[in-house]
Computed example of a mutant assay.
Amino acid sequence: MKNLIIEKIKEIEDKSNVKVLFAVESGSRAWGYSSNNSDYDVRFIYCPPPEWYLSIDPQGVGGKRDVIELSIDELLDINGWEITKALRLFRKSNPTLFEWMRSEIVYYQNSIFLKRLNLLESKVFNSKVCLHHYFNIAKTNYQKCSQKNKLYFYVLRSLFVCKWIMQNHSFPPIDFQQLLHSLDIQGELKEEIEILFEHKKRSKLEGFEGKLLATNEFIETELIRLQDYISSLTAIKNVDTTEQLDNLFRETLRAVW
Protein backbone atom coordinates (compact mmCIF):
# COMPACT_ATOMS: atom_id res chain seq x y z
CA MET A 1 0.00 0.00 0.00
CA LYS A 2 2.86 2.38 0.77
CA ASN A 3 4.16 2.15 -2.80
CA LEU A 4 0.67 2.84 -4.15
CA ILE A 5 0.31 5.91 -1.90
CA ILE A 6 3.68 7.30 -3.00
CA GLU A 7 2.68 6.67 -6.61
CA LYS A 8 -0.61 8.57 -6.10
CA ILE A 9 1.23 11.48 -4.48
CA LYS A 10 3.48 11.73 -7.54
CA GLU A 11 0.39 11.62 -9.77
CA ILE A 12 -1.13 14.49 -7.82
CA GLU A 13 2.05 16.53 -8.32
CA ASP A 14 2.03 15.89 -12.07
CA LYS A 15 -1.69 16.32 -12.76
CA SER A 16 -2.24 19.32 -10.48
CA ASN A 17 1.14 20.95 -11.15
CA VAL A 18 2.06 21.25 -7.47
CA LYS A 19 4.91 20.24 -5.18
CA VAL A 20 4.02 18.12 -2.15
CA LEU A 21 5.89 19.32 0.96
CA PHE A 22 4.98 16.47 3.21
CA ALA A 23 2.50 13.61 3.24
CA VAL A 24 1.60 11.47 6.25
CA GLU A 25 -0.91 9.00 7.57
CA SER A 26 -3.71 10.36 9.74
CA GLY A 27 -6.54 8.71 11.67
CA SER A 28 -6.49 5.33 13.41
CA ARG A 29 -3.31 4.08 11.73
CA ALA A 30 -1.37 7.11 12.94
CA TRP A 31 -3.04 6.88 16.37
CA GLY A 32 -1.92 3.28 16.85
CA TYR A 33 -5.23 1.46 17.05
CA SER A 34 -6.02 0.45 13.50
CA SER A 35 -7.55 -2.93 12.73
CA ASN A 36 -7.08 -5.13 9.67
CA ASN A 37 -9.92 -3.41 7.81
CA SER A 38 -9.03 0.17 8.75
CA ASP A 39 -8.76 2.54 5.82
CA TYR A 40 -5.78 4.71 4.94
CA ASP A 41 -6.20 8.44 5.53
CA VAL A 42 -3.34 10.22 3.76
CA ARG A 43 -2.96 13.95 4.42
CA PHE A 44 -0.51 16.35 2.81
CA ILE A 45 0.52 19.98 2.30
CA TYR A 46 1.36 21.17 -1.18
CA CYS A 47 2.71 24.25 -2.94
CA PRO A 48 1.45 25.45 -6.37
CA PRO A 49 3.83 27.34 -8.71
CA PRO A 50 4.37 31.11 -8.33
CA GLU A 51 2.00 31.85 -11.23
CA TRP A 52 -0.87 30.38 -9.21
CA TYR A 53 -0.49 33.16 -6.67
CA LEU A 54 0.11 35.92 -9.22
CA SER A 55 -3.41 36.29 -10.58
CA ILE A 56 -6.40 38.55 -10.01
CA ASP A 57 -8.59 35.79 -8.55
CA PRO A 58 -8.27 35.09 -4.81
CA GLN A 59 -7.03 31.77 -3.47
CA GLY A 60 -9.58 29.21 -2.42
CA VAL A 61 -12.25 30.39 -4.83
CA GLY A 62 -13.52 28.82 -8.06
CA GLY A 63 -10.72 27.32 -10.10
CA LYS A 64 -8.20 28.22 -7.40
CA ARG A 65 -9.34 25.78 -4.75
CA ASP A 66 -6.92 25.47 -1.84
CA VAL A 67 -7.55 21.77 -1.23
CA ILE A 68 -6.93 18.64 -3.27
CA GLU A 69 -9.15 15.63 -2.58
CA LEU A 70 -8.64 12.19 -4.06
CA SER A 71 -10.76 9.24 -2.99
CA ILE A 72 -9.26 6.12 -4.55
CA ASP A 73 -11.65 3.56 -3.04
CA GLU A 74 -13.17 2.63 0.32
CA LEU A 75 -9.70 1.79 1.63
CA LEU A 76 -7.68 4.83 0.52
CA ASP A 77 -8.51 8.50 0.95
CA ILE A 78 -6.01 11.28 0.11
CA ASN A 79 -6.54 14.96 0.98
CA GLY A 80 -4.21 17.95 0.97
CA TRP A 81 -4.08 21.62 1.94
CA GLU A 82 -2.39 24.36 -0.07
CA ILE A 83 0.55 25.81 1.86
CA THR A 84 -0.88 29.25 2.70
CA LYS A 85 -4.14 27.68 3.87
CA ALA A 86 -2.12 25.32 6.08
CA LEU A 87 0.02 28.13 7.49
CA ARG A 88 -3.03 30.28 8.30
CA LEU A 89 -4.54 27.34 10.18
CA PHE A 90 -1.20 26.70 11.88
CA ARG A 91 -1.17 30.33 13.05
CA LYS A 92 -4.55 29.68 14.70
CA SER A 93 -3.21 26.63 16.59
CA ASN A 94 -5.07 24.10 14.45
CA PRO A 95 -4.90 20.70 16.24
CA THR A 96 -5.36 18.68 13.05
CA LEU A 97 -2.20 20.14 11.58
CA PHE A 98 -0.30 19.49 14.81
CA GLU A 99 -1.36 15.85 14.52
CA TRP A 100 -0.12 15.60 10.94
CA MET A 101 3.24 16.96 12.10
CA ARG A 102 3.49 14.17 14.71
CA SER A 103 2.52 11.26 12.53
CA GLU A 104 5.18 8.55 12.52
CA ILE A 105 3.90 7.15 9.20
CA VAL A 106 5.54 9.50 6.72
CA TYR A 107 5.23 9.00 2.97
CA TYR A 108 7.18 12.08 1.94
CA GLN A 109 8.62 15.17 3.61
CA ASN A 110 10.56 18.29 2.78
CA SER A 111 12.69 18.19 5.91
CA ILE A 112 13.63 21.88 5.83
CA PHE A 113 10.01 23.03 5.62
CA LEU A 114 8.89 20.67 8.39
CA LYS A 115 11.81 21.59 10.66
CA ARG A 116 11.02 25.29 10.40
CA LEU A 117 7.34 24.62 11.05
CA ASN A 118 8.22 22.62 14.16
CA LEU A 119 10.38 25.46 15.46
CA LEU A 120 7.38 27.80 15.35
CA GLU A 121 4.91 25.47 17.06
CA SER A 122 5.54 26.70 20.59
CA LYS A 123 4.69 30.24 19.47
CA VAL A 124 1.35 29.36 17.89
CA PHE A 125 0.21 26.63 20.30
CA ASN A 126 -2.91 27.76 22.17
CA SER A 127 -4.04 25.39 24.91
CA LYS A 128 -7.58 26.77 25.10
CA VAL A 129 -8.17 26.31 21.35
CA CYS A 130 -6.90 22.72 21.47
CA LEU A 131 -8.77 21.83 24.65
CA HIS A 132 -12.01 23.14 23.21
CA HIS A 133 -11.46 21.14 19.99
CA TYR A 134 -10.89 17.81 21.74
CA PHE A 135 -13.59 18.41 24.35
CA ASN A 136 -16.14 18.76 21.55
CA ILE A 137 -14.90 15.56 19.87
CA ALA A 138 -15.18 13.65 23.15
CA LYS A 139 -18.61 15.02 24.04
CA THR A 140 -20.11 14.49 20.57
CA ASN A 141 -18.81 10.95 20.16
CA TYR A 142 -19.69 9.84 23.68
CA GLN A 143 -23.33 10.53 22.90
CA LYS A 144 -23.07 7.99 20.03
CA CYS A 145 -21.09 5.27 21.82
CA SER A 146 -24.19 3.21 22.52
CA GLN A 147 -24.58 2.74 18.76
CA LYS A 148 -20.89 2.29 17.86
CA ASN A 149 -18.41 0.92 20.38
CA LYS A 150 -15.44 1.98 18.25
CA LEU A 151 -16.25 5.60 19.06
CA TYR A 152 -14.97 4.98 22.60
CA PHE A 153 -11.48 5.37 21.20
CA TYR A 154 -12.25 8.82 19.79
CA VAL A 155 -13.65 9.81 23.18
CA LEU A 156 -10.86 8.35 25.29
CA ARG A 157 -8.08 9.59 23.05
CA SER A 158 -9.53 13.12 23.04
CA LEU A 159 -9.77 13.14 26.82
CA PHE A 160 -6.21 11.81 27.13
CA VAL A 161 -5.02 14.61 24.84
CA CYS A 162 -6.79 17.14 27.06
CA LYS A 163 -5.26 15.68 30.23
CA TRP A 164 -1.80 15.89 28.64
CA ILE A 165 -2.33 19.53 27.62
CA MET A 166 -3.59 20.45 31.10
CA GLN A 167 -0.56 18.80 32.73
CA ASN A 168 2.19 19.74 30.27
CA HIS A 169 0.92 22.88 28.48
CA SER A 170 2.05 21.51 25.14
CA PHE A 171 0.65 19.38 22.34
CA PRO A 172 0.98 15.65 23.07
CA PRO A 173 2.18 12.63 21.12
CA ILE A 174 -0.66 11.20 19.04
CA ASP A 175 -0.17 7.47 19.66
CA PHE A 176 -2.97 6.10 21.86
CA GLN A 177 -0.83 3.68 23.87
CA GLN A 178 1.85 6.27 24.45
CA LEU A 179 -0.77 8.65 25.84
CA LEU A 180 -2.27 5.90 27.98
CA HIS A 181 1.08 5.04 29.57
CA SER A 182 2.26 8.63 29.99
CA LEU A 183 -0.88 9.53 31.98
CA ASP A 184 -0.43 6.54 34.30
CA ILE A 185 -3.95 5.15 33.89
CA GLN A 186 -4.41 2.26 36.32
CA GLY A 187 -6.96 -0.16 37.82
CA GLU A 188 -10.26 -1.19 36.28
CA LEU A 189 -10.16 1.65 33.80
CA LYS A 190 -6.87 0.45 32.33
CA GLU A 191 -8.12 -3.15 32.20
CA GLU A 192 -11.28 -2.15 30.33
CA ILE A 193 -9.31 -0.01 27.88
CA GLU A 194 -6.87 -2.84 27.18
CA ILE A 195 -9.79 -5.21 26.50
CA LEU A 196 -11.32 -2.63 24.13
CA PHE A 197 -7.95 -2.18 22.46
CA GLU A 198 -7.56 -5.90 21.76
CA HIS A 199 -11.08 -6.14 20.32
CA LYS A 200 -10.41 -3.11 18.12
CA LYS A 201 -7.18 -4.58 16.76
CA ARG A 202 -9.05 -7.77 15.85
CA SER A 203 -11.89 -5.83 14.18
CA LYS A 204 -14.38 -7.28 16.65
CA LEU A 205 -15.28 -4.17 18.61
CA GLU A 206 -18.87 -3.90 17.40
CA GLY A 207 -19.58 -7.30 18.88
CA PHE A 208 -18.16 -6.35 22.26
CA GLU A 209 -20.75 -6.49 25.03
CA GLY A 210 -18.71 -5.54 28.12
CA LYS A 211 -20.23 -3.19 30.67
CA LEU A 212 -17.36 -0.66 30.67
CA LEU A 213 -18.46 0.77 34.01
CA ALA A 214 -15.09 2.30 34.87
CA THR A 215 -14.69 3.70 31.36
CA ASN A 216 -18.07 5.39 31.35
CA GLU A 217 -17.51 6.80 34.83
CA PHE A 218 -14.12 8.17 33.78
CA ILE A 219 -15.54 9.77 30.63
CA GLU A 220 -18.47 11.40 32.40
CA THR A 221 -16.29 12.72 35.22
CA GLU A 222 -13.65 14.06 32.84
CA LEU A 223 -16.19 15.77 30.58
CA ILE A 224 -17.59 17.72 33.53
CA ARG A 225 -14.13 18.56 34.87
CA LEU A 226 -12.87 19.58 31.46
CA GLN A 227 -15.83 21.81 30.72
CA ASP A 228 -15.33 23.62 34.03
CA TYR A 229 -11.60 23.96 33.37
CA ILE A 230 -12.06 25.41 29.88
CA SER A 231 -14.69 27.85 31.16
CA SER A 232 -12.23 29.08 33.77
CA LEU A 233 -9.52 29.87 31.23
CA THR A 234 -9.08 33.44 30.11
CA ALA A 235 -8.53 34.22 26.46
CA ILE A 236 -5.02 33.33 25.36
CA LYS A 237 -3.49 35.58 22.72
CA ASN A 238 -1.00 33.91 20.42
CA VAL A 239 2.34 35.43 19.54
CA ASP A 240 2.04 37.09 16.11
CA THR A 241 3.98 34.81 13.79
CA THR A 242 2.64 36.28 10.55
CA GLU A 243 5.97 37.69 9.39
CA GLN A 244 7.82 34.44 10.11
CA LEU A 245 5.15 32.38 8.33
CA ASP A 246 5.17 34.76 5.37
CA ASN A 247 8.92 34.29 5.11
CA LEU A 248 8.57 30.52 5.38
CA PHE A 249 6.00 30.52 2.58
CA ARG A 250 8.09 32.73 0.27
CA GLU A 251 11.31 30.82 0.84
CA THR A 252 9.56 27.48 0.35
CA LEU A 253 7.96 28.71 -2.86
CA ARG A 254 11.37 29.77 -4.21
CA ALA A 255 13.08 26.58 -3.07
CA VAL A 256 10.65 24.03 -4.53
CA TRP A 257 10.08 25.86 -7.83
Rank of each mutant, 00 (worst) to 15 (best):
I78S: 00
K144S: 05
L89R: 04
T215C: 14
Q227G: 07
F22N: 00
L89V: 04
E220D: 13
Q147V: 06
R43D: 09
E69A: 15
C47G: 01
S146W: 09
D184L: 07
N216C: 05
L205Y: 00
R29M: 00
M166E: 12
V256E: 10
D14W: 05
T215Q: 11
L212Q: 06
E194V: 10
K2W: 05
A30W: 00
A235S: 14
S232P: 12
S16A: 11
A23T: 05
Q178P: 03
T84H: 13
F160K: 02
S103K: 12
T242F: 13
V18L: 08
L156G: 05
D14G: 07
Y229Q: 05
A255V: 01
Q227I: 01
E13H: 10
S203C: 04
P173A: 02
L75E: 15
A23C: 14
L248G: 08
A30D: 04
K200V: 00
E13D: 09
E251H: 14
N79I: 00
S16M: 10
S146N: 14
I112R: 12
E209K: 14
Q178G: 10
I72D: 00
I185L: 03
K150R: 15
F22H: 02
S26L: 02
N149A: 03
S35C: 14
L233T: 06
I78W: 00
Y108N: 07
G27R: 03
M1S: 14
Q227R: 11
S103M: 05
W164K: 01
Y33C: 02
L205K: 01
S111D: 14
K123C: 08
W31L: 05
D66S: 14
G62F: 09
I9G: 03
A255L: 11
S35I: 11
A214K: 04
V106H: 04
E25L: 03
R116W: 10
A138P: 00
E69H: 12
P173G: 02
L159F: 11
K201R: 13
W52T: 08
N37W: 03
L183V: 08
N36K: 14
I72S: 07
N118K: 15
R29F: 07
Y134M: 05
G207H: 11
T140K: 13
L212F: 11
V124R: 12
N36Y: 13
L180W: 05
T96K: 02
V61I: 15
D228K: 15
Q59K: 13
L119R: 14
L196C: 08
K144I: 02
F208D: 15
Y107T: 10
V18W: 05
P173N: 04
T241A: 10
F135H: 12
R157I: 06
H133G: 09
P50K: 15
A138D: 01
Y33M: 04
Y142R: 09
Y107P: 10
L75H: 09
I45Y: 01
N238W: 04
S127N: 03
D66M: 05
K92V: 00
L70I: 07
K123V: 02
N94M: 06
A255M: 14
E206H: 09
Y107E: 07
F98Q: 03
K123T: 06
L248T: 10
E206T: 03
P173C: 04
L189F: 06
H132F: 10
